[in-house]
Write a protein that binds this DNA or RNA. Structure first.
Lengths: 341, 341
DNA sequence: TTGTATGCGTTATCAG
DNA sequence: CTGATAACGCATACAA
């Protein structure tokens, strides 16, 4: 068995409480004893047992990041950034992947008791949170890319999001501005109630309506079937859209992954981008930038997402204050969309 | 505060030991009492505290997955699969991301004491493990995609790998077989000692030598500078290779991400794939399949990786037996390589 | 400033 | 089959 606090105490010739004080720097300790303790820690290669700590502590120093579908490359960047910031601030970070079909709220509640984190970051998922959910979680939560329902008291949580409706509307209106009228919409129609995707479709529709263009169901994505991955789905969905709408000149996708799948379908069917079909994605991933040709996209501000999330978390932890920030996206024209002649 | 085992015991009218026995199904319990306990668990929404469990348990039921650079899409699939298998077997799974520049061995040792997992899966990283490392970790380890040094007693750990040298040699010889002679090699030359990349470069060289082609340094990748991502690096590296080797007709990349970056550079410089430059990646990611055009690649058997890793883990956990398996890859010709006229 | 003693929620041991 | 009870490793109120 490895060294415990007891061993350190013995080796340093002090009591375990003194060792604990040195390690947590909770109280001032005699300098000379402090050094003896540190020396023992080094020599015995002592690492405090987090289980015991979290069990005893009122507040652990662990942040849990719950990611809905870690496959999303956009999330990965955020995870990476947030982890770095939090670890620098002295927290240990744990990541949990939540399957597409898992109930992230239930898992959050479970994890909250399981690992006793002092804060939870919820990355992705749907908008279904209720007040009871937060009460059962009972740990400061920051929702990233999603919000709780409108009836939920906003003081119960923090959030960092974008305005999905407005951003997708912007994306669609960009195509409309280029003269497109028959604009397809690639998205995964799932069972779930309110996801960012749902909102984005709403934005797509709003854009059409505001410009006097009829919303046609046959231009809007197909339901997800089987367990296709994002690329596959985008591909199949696009094939179907092109078959049913020969006059379609442009397409908005709800994500870059879907956009790439759709773009591949365009090329596979012998059409060209952007000469025959204009296409724009959403997220701003490297994958879209390095695709051939580079795809236009609505860039989500990853760095801001990370920073604001960490900020919100610290604010909840230290000042018990919640916050809700809405970030701006940036439409990036890389040449995969062009005026409709 | 939420319900504890004590509350359940009281509610069910039994002792806490009985509750524990029901929950861990470690011993037979009277059927009627068992049901009373289960009912109380349900009604009080009881969730056992893992910290306390792991603290007390000789062997926790948690598997830790340590991933070196979670950004790698190949790793993500493995994580996903392994998690599923392990959770189905009743383990809880924790994922920890290890930064590119972090020392995964030190972190593994720390986590081993921190969270007291019953097993650790090490995904990626380098080949630098020593016997002391495993002794300090003191928890069954399965190394995935890497192995420990040759001097390390193989009974100290399990591993699931591919033969990086042979597979990359196969890839290179495929190009040679197509008549290519001036073949570039895209890889990130890092400080680290032995990574899969290093071995793959070795395979590339072996292929050339075995076929009487001189190995030329100017055809081999550039060192990584700054913090470019994989795509960016592949792109820049390829640009430089093309400048310095106008007669280069083909390129092998150490990963699909690098291959995509390189392919983008080919296109950006006005050349065509495969007419002007043949290109082949490594990994078999969806990204390479959905690129335009689809890229040839050496497919790593993701599903087998996941399955074998889980198998190896179970074998270590249940029978204290280590195993070392080497998987076969599959060269996939999708049309991004063609005979050199 | 320091040490002693108690308890966090569980599982394991032991005697019934 | 069951119920007390002692650990697990640590942080902290309390006493010194």
């Amino acid at each position: 068995m490895s060294a415990t606090i007891k061993d350190i105490a013995k080796a340093a010739g002090v009591s375990i409480s003194t060792v604990s004080r040195v390690l947590t720097s909770s109280q001032t300790v005699d300098q000379e004893k402090k050094e003896r303790v540190m020396k023992a820690v080094r020599e015995l290669n002592y690492i405090p047992n987090n289980n015991a700590r979290n069990l005893r502590r009122t507040q652990s120093q662990t942040i849990m990041i719950l990611v809905k579908t870690i496959e999303n490359p956009f999330f990965q960047k955020i995870i990476h950034n947030i982890s770095k910031v939090l670890m620098l601030a002295g927290y240990s970070v744990e990541i949990q992947n939540v399957g597409k079909s898992d109930d992230e709220i239930a898992i959050a509640a479970k994890e909250a008791k399981n690992t006793n984190p002092c804060g939870i970051v919820l990355l992705g998922g749907s908008f279904g949170y209720t007040e009871d959910n937060f009460k059962s979680i009972a740990v400061p939560c920051v929702l990233v890319t999603i919000k709780a329902g409108p009836s939920v008291n906003p003081d119960l949580y923090s959030s960092v999001i974008i305005d999905d409706v407005a951003e997708m509307r912007k994306s669609t209106e960009y195509l409309i501005g280029l003269g497109h009228r028959r604009i397809g919409c690639i998205y995964t129609k799932t069972q779930e109630a309110d996801t960012p995707n749902t909102l984005r479709v709403k934005g797509y529709m709003q854009a059409l309506e505001a410009n006097g263009i009829a919303v046609e169901p046959q231009l809007i994505g197909t339901p997800l079937q089987g367990n296709q991955n994002g690329y596959e789905f985008g591909f199949n969905s696009m094939i179907r859209l092109m078959e049913r709408n020969p006059d379609m000149t442009a397409v908005v996708a709800m994500s870059d992954v879907l956009a790439i799948g759709a773009a591949k379908a365009v090329v596979a069917s012998g059409r060209r981008i952007p000469e025959d079909i204009s296409i724009i994605g959403f997220d701003g991933t490297d994958e879209a930038e390095y695709w051939n040709p580079s795809l236009d996209t609505v860039v989500q501000p990853v760095d801001q997402f990370s920073q604001k999330t960490a900020d919100a978390l610290f604010q909840m932890l230290n000042e018990q204050k919640t916050s809700h920030v809405v970030l701006q996206c940036n439409l990036l024209n890389r040449g995969s969309c062009r005026p409709n002649p």
